[in-house]
Design a protein around this nucleic acid. Structure first.
Lengths: 408, 408
DNA sequence: TTTAATTAGTCCAGGTCGCGTACGAATTAA
DNA sequence: TTAATTCGTACGCGACCTGGACTAATTAAA
C-alpha cells in the first residue's frame, strides 16, 4: 500500500508555494520580501508575485517601511493579516457548549461558553443550540471585519473517520448520531468544508497553540474528564490510527483482573482514575445527570477536601495519579513522545496527583529511552477543544491558502 | 511547529511526477501509456515524456504490443523493469548476518544468511563481516545485470534518529556503537545513501511486502526474539515516534510489581514472554553465549516438548501468549491498528500461544472499537528484517526515481 | 476489399510559472 | 554630491504541462 501521490501541475505548484511563503511569513513576521527570498530559496521576483496573491486575498498585509540592516533601501515589512480571515471552533461537551473565533494571528476574537447539561438531551436539540452559537459567532466576527473561512467541531466520543458520524458518546448517552450531517445542514456555507473530530484530539491541538507551544515537540495530551482520552500529536499533526480510535488511554489496563469496565475489560484506567472513580474513592457521592447542574460542583468539593488534607481524598487522588503514570509509561514505550501534558480534571488535581504520576512514569519508562518524557500541566480552561478546533481551521488556511486566493 | 513544506520548482514537479507515473506502472503493470494518462490525469504527451525518462534510466521497459480493448490500435505495454536496478538489504542480528538483493519487482535475486554468534564480538569485526557479505551480494547482483541503487541495514537495538548510531543493543552486548559510520566506511558508494533502522521496524516492513501485503492495512508487527519489539506501520510507513524509540512492546508492564527487568521497571512483558523467560518457565536451561552455536537449538527443544504435550512447557507458552495479548490490547487501545502480526519466536509458538493471546486481546480491546483487530501469524523466516530492508530501498527508488534519472 | 470507426502515441503551438539579470528606488557613509 | 548598499520590480528565458491536430495500427461494417 503506497502513500497516494497526486500529480503535480503548475497550479498545484503555485498553491504549494503560496503555502510555503505564507508559512514563512507566519513564522518570521514582520519580514521583508528579501528575507523571504533568502529563507525559501525563491527569487525575489517569485516572492513578490506570491506575496501579491496572498495580499489580494487579505491573508497578508504590508506594514510600511522598516529599516532592517544598517545601509541600503529600507524594506517593506510583510505580516499575516489578522483582520480579514478567521476560523471558527465549536465544541459539544457533556455540560457545556462552546464557540470561539480565532483570527489568522490566533488571537481570540470571540469566545462563548454556555453551561448546559447535554446528557440524554436529544442530539437534534443540542446541535440546534450549537448552530445558534455558531451563527452568533460568525456575526460577531463580521462586526470586527472578519470573514470566517471554515469551522471545526469537537465532539466528545468516537467518530467515524471522515464523515463526522458520532459512533458512540457514552458520557452524553448518544449512540450512532449523524452529527456531521446534522451540523452540515445547520451551519452556513463557508469557503472550507466543516470538519469534525474527537474532543481529546482537538484539546491536544489547543495545547499546541495556546499552551507551551512548539516546545512540546511530540506529545501525548491527557484529557481526563468522566472518561479519559489522549490526543497524540507527532510533528504538529494528530495521530489517529487506522480508524480514528487511537489514544484510548482510558481503557489501558492498570489492574489486571480489577473492577469491570463498560468497555468489557477489567481494571481499565478509567476504573481507577476516571472522575467517577476518584469521587467514589474520596467518598463523594457519584454524580447523577440531575445533580450536576453546576459544572464542576463535585470536583470543587474534592479540591476543597484535598486542600484541607482529607486522607481519603488524598489517597484516592494519589492512587489515580499513580495509575495514570502506569498507563502513561506504557504509552511512552509505544509512542515515544517528548512530553506528556496533563489536562482536564488532572490539571486541577495535579498538585496532589503529580508526584505519584511522575514516579510511576519514571518507573515504567526508564532505561529504554534515555529518560522519561517531560511532564507538564495544562493551563487551558474547559474550552481547550474549541480553541484547538478554531486553531485547526487557522492551520488549514495557513497550510493551503489557495482556496481563499482568487485564481487569476 | 508546522510540518516543513519545501518550495516547489519545475524540477521538483518533474521529480514528483516521475514518481507518480512509476508508482502507477508498478500498481497496474503491464499498462499502456493511454491507461496511465487516464489514471493519473496527465495528458498522453506528458505520460510519454515521463515514461521516456524512466525508460532511459532503466527503471521501466516496453513489453511490446498488447491488444487492450476490442478495436483500435494496440497499445505498447509498459512495466517496471526488474532487470536493471536492485536494492540491498543487510541485517546484523544476535546469531546471524544476512544480506539479500531485491530487484525492482521485489523478486529475490540473492539471499545469504550466515550463522554467527555475534554476542560480545567486537562491533568492528562483525561489521567487517557484514560489508564482506554486502560486497558479495553486489557482485552477485552485477552478474545478473543488476546495479544496486542503495542499501538499508537492520540493527538489533535502539538507534539514534538519522545517523545510524546504535545507542544500545542489549542482546548483542553492544553499547553506543557508531554503526552507521563504520558501515558507511565499509560499504561501496551507491547512488542512494545507506540508511539504518531497527530490526523490528524493518521486519514489519518485510511483512508488508512478503507476507499478507496491503491486506494488513495498518498493523503492529511483533518481533519476539530474546527481546520483544514491535514495528508499527500506518499507511505503509513505519511510525517511529519522536526519537525513533516507538514500539517498545517488550517493556509494557503486564504484571505490576512483577519480576525486575533490565530496563529498571518491574513485570515487563519481556520478563514473562521473552525467549529466556519462556525457556526458564518451561524448565529448559537458559542460553549462554557459547551454548547457542546452533541458532534455534533451545527453541526447537521447546517446540519438541510442546508437541509431546509437556505440561510445564505448555503452561509457560500459554502464559506468555496471554501476557502478549494483554500488552497488545494496550497497544490496540493506543494505536488502533487493523491487524496484529505475530513474528519472531511467536510465529513458531503460535499453535500453542495463539488462543491465549487472542482471548486476552479480545478481553482488553473490545468495545471501544467495534471489534479487536485481526491476528495473523508471520510466515517469514529469520531474515524478515533483511527482506524488509531491501524492500525499503526498492520503495525509495519507486517513491523518488529522480535520483536515478539522468537530468537532461 | 474498401471504408469508417476506434484507439495509441507523437508533434507542435501555447500557457503558466519560477529563474536570472538588469534596473530603478531609497537610504547610509564618505 | 558621490559611492555603496539594499529593496523591489521589469523583462526575457527556460522548464514543463496542456490541448488539439495528426499519424499509426487495428477491428467492424459495408
Amino acid at each position: 500500500m503506497r502513500h497516494e501521490v497526486a500529480p503535480l501541475r503548475h497550479g498545484t505548484m503555485r498553491e504549494r508555494n503560496l503555502a510555503v511563503v505564507l508559512g514563512e511569513i507566519a513564522r518570521r513576521q514582520p519580514v521583508s520580501r528579501a528575507r523571504l527570498a533568502e529563507a525559501t530559496g525563491f527569487t525575489k521576483t517569485t516572492v513578490s508575485s506570491l506575496v501579491a496573491s496572498l495580499a489580494g486575498a487579505g491573508l497578508v498585509r504590508e506594514d510600511g517601511p522598516v529599516r532592517d540592516g544598517e545601509r541600503g533601501r529600507p524594506a517593506t515589512a510583510v505580516s499575516v493579516n489578522g483582520d480579514r480571515v478567521a476560523g471558527l471552533g465549536l465544541e459539544i461537551n457533556v455540560d457545556y457548549l462552546a464557540a470561539c473565533v480565532l483570527d489568522l494571528g490566533r488571537r481570540i476574537r470571540h469566545r462563548h461558553i454556555v453551561a448546559a447539561d447535554n446528557r440524554d438531551r436529544a442530539p437534534e436539540r443540542v446541535i440546534a443550540a450549537l448552530t445558534g452559537l455558531a451563527a452568533r459567532a460568525i456575526a460577531a466576527a463580521g462586526e470586527q471585519g472578519l470573514s470566517v473561512a471554515g469551522a471545526v467541531v469537537a465532539l466528545p466520543g468516537t467518530l467515524d473517520q471522515g464523515g463526522g458520524r458520532l459512533r458512540s458518546a457514552p458520557n452524553l448517552g448518544w449512540d450512532d448520531v449523524p452529527a456531521g450531517e446534522l451540523l452540515d445542514a445547520g451551519l452556513p456555507a463557508l469557503p472550507l468544508a466543516a470538519d469534525y473530530d474527537n474532543e481529546a484530539n482537538l484539546a491536544a491541538l489547543g495545547e499546541l497553540w495556546f499552551g507551551d507551544g512548539p516546545a512540546l515537540g511530540s506529545y501525548v495530551h491527557v484529557s481526563g474528564e468522566i472518561g479519559i482520552g489522549a490526543g497524540i500529536v507527532v510533528d504538529g499533526r494528530v495521530f489517529r490510527g487506522a480508524h480514528g480510535f487511537a489514544g484510548e488511554l482510558g481503557h489501558v489496563v492498570v489492574e489486571p483482573g480489577g473492577s469491570p469496565c463498560a468497555c468489557g475489560g477489567r481494571g481499565c484506567l478509567e476504573q481507577v482514575a476516571g472522575q467517577e472513580a476518584i469521587l467514589r474513592g474520596a467518598g463523594i457521592a457519584a454524580v447523577t445527570a440531575t445533580s450536576s447542574a453546576s459544572p464542576d460542583g463535585p470536583l470543587s468539593a474534592l479540591v476543597a477536601r484535598l486542600e484541607r488534607g482529607d486522607e481519603r481524598a488524598l489517597t484516592a487522588v494519589r492512587r489515580a495519579g499513580e495509575a495514570l503514570g502506569q498507563a502513561l509509561a506504557t504509552a511512552v514505550n509505544l509512542l515515544d513522545p517528548d512530553t506528556i501534558v496533563l489536562g482536564g480534571i488532572f490539571s486541577g488535581l495535579a498538585p496532589w496527583a503529580r508526584p505519584a504520576t511522575e514516579a510511576a512514569l519514571a518507573d515504567g519508562a526508564g532505561l529504554v529511552r534515555r529518560s522519561p518524557p517531560r511532564l507538564t500541566v495544562s493551563r487551558l480552561g474547559g474550552d481547550a477543544a474549541a480553541l484547538g478546533a478554531a486553531s485547526l481551521v487557522v492551520e488549514r488556511v495557513l497550510d493551503d491558502p489557495s482556496r481563499l486566493v482568487t485564481r487569476c
